[in-house]
């Protein structure tokens, strides 16, 4: 982050992180099948880094567990995310990061739908349309500077 640039939202509200998922006895049992559930999907995306702040999407409340819906049997995932301010210029990039993370982390049987929480962004429709368009997502990932930013959001934070 350069010293001179101003952030759009320099002092955002910070939310508490949820703890690690508690390990249950059935998860350690070889014979039990663990279905993919909302919390598991949320755990995939909550640690994605914000493009601007050294904070995770969970800490900025951009993603919440209640806005994640998964149906393991029908192989569908639906994620809603909430930009911190209605004019956030990073909304598309955040949506793209979430989508890419899910594409890399879920079996390919899943249909993945990522969109903005209704009524929380000025150009909601345009962003949703971009994120839903497979070809545009693929094209965006061909762009190496865009891929670089997405990868930075997805890399585990180094200290």
């Amino acid at each position: 982050m350069s010293g001179g640039t101003r952030l759009e939202n320099a002092n955002p509200v910070v939310f508490q992180r949820s703890g690690e998922r508690l390990l249950t006895a059935s998860e350690e049992d070889e014979d039990v099948h663990d279905p993919i559930d909302d919390r598991e999907i949320f755990d995939l995306i909550r640690s994605i880094n914000d493009p601007e702040h050294p904070l995770s999407l969970e800490e900025l409340n951009v993603v919440e567990q209640v806005r994640v819906k998964v149906n393991d049997a029908e192989s569908t995932v639906e994620v809603e995310f909430t930009p911190t301010i209605p004019h956030c210029s990073m909304a598309t990039l955040i949506g793209l990061s979430v989508k890419v993370k899910l594409l890399r982390s879920l079996p390919d049987r899943f249909k993945i739908d990522v969109h903005i929480t209704p009524g929380t962004h000025a150009s909601e429709e345009a962003v949703n349309k971009q994120l839903a368009d497979k070809e545009r997502v693929a094209a965006a990932l061909e762009n190496s500077s865009l891929l670089e930013v997405v990868n930075q959001c997805l890399s585990t934070r180094s200290i």
Binding site: L23, E27, E28, E30, H33, D34, I36, E40, D43, L44, K101, R104, S105, L106, P107, R109, L154, T156
Partner: peptide, 17 residues
């Protein structure tokens, strides 16, 4: 990534990422 055990899936996710 589609393993029946969640613990295996989470290791696979990290490695693949």
């Amino acid at each position: 990534l589609d393993d029946r055990k969640r613990l295996v899936r989470s290791e696979a996710v990290q490695a693949r990422g």
